[in-house]
Amino acid sequence: MSSGVNSIVEVAGLTKVFNGTTAVDNISFEMYEGEILGLIGPNGAGKTTTLQMLLGLTTPTSGQIRLFGLDLRKNREEILNKVNFSSSYISLPFSLTVRENLMVFARLYGVREPKKMINGLLETFEIDGIGNIPTRRLSSGQITRVCLCKALLNNPRVLFLDEPTASLDPDIADKTRKLLQRIRKDNGLSILYTSHNMKEMEELSDRILFMDRGKVIALGRPEEIEKKFHGASLEEVFLKIARLE
C-alpha cells in the first residue's frame, strides 16, 4: 500500500464475498486529506458494501483498510472517534427531541461543550427552531439535516455520506452541498460520498471513484472520467455503463 503524506484513507486489495458471490472485487484506492471523493456506480456495483467495510460494519473477506495510517481492525475505537456517518436511510430515536438525540451522540463521542456544539450545528443547518421537537414530528428533510448535525458533532476528519441529499428539496440540498464544501475548506474535512445525483457528484467531488460489478472501473476527476468513457457528462457516462450490463 502506498503511503502518501496526506493520504487519510488507504484501501488495498479489498474484497468481499457473500456466499460465493463477489460483491467487492480486489479494490484499491486512496483518499486524501480535505478531499471530497464521490463513489458512484449502478445498483449492485458494491458501493454500499465498500462503505460498510470502511465503517467497520462489515468484515472484509480480504484486503486492508487503513485510516489515519491505522489498521481499522485493530484500532476501531480510535478511528471511529475521528470519523462519522450519515445516510438518508437511517434515522434517530423517534420519541426523543432533536436536542436529546444530539446530546446522546455528543456524549458518546465525548464532545466538549456539547450544548454549544449542538446549538451551532442546528443554526448552521437552519433548524434551530426544531431543537425541542420530538424527532417523529419532523419531515424527512428535517431528519436528514438532524442526521447531518449528528455526523458533524465530533468534528470528524473523515465523513462518510450515503446519499445525504436524497430527501432534501433542491434549495436545502444546494445549501447542504455548499455547507459541506465550506466545512471541508475551513476544517480540512475529507468526505466520501455516494449519490445517484450525477450533477451533484460533478459539482461536489474532487475525484470520482466509479465502481461496477464490484470493481473500480475508473478513478479520477469528473472530467477525466467523462473523457475516458467519451461522455459529455457524468450522467451520460453512468447511463452508458449501466446499460452495457
Binding site: E77, N81, V83, S91, F94, L108, C147
Partner: peptide
C-alpha cells in the same frame, strides 16, 4: 434501536 433505525448510528460510533 432497531425500530428507530438507529443501530447504524450506534455501531459507527466509538461505542463498542
Amino acid at each position: 434501536d432497531m425500530w428507530s433505525r438507529n443501530l447504524l448510528n450506534i455501531f459507527v460510533s466509538p461505542l463498542s
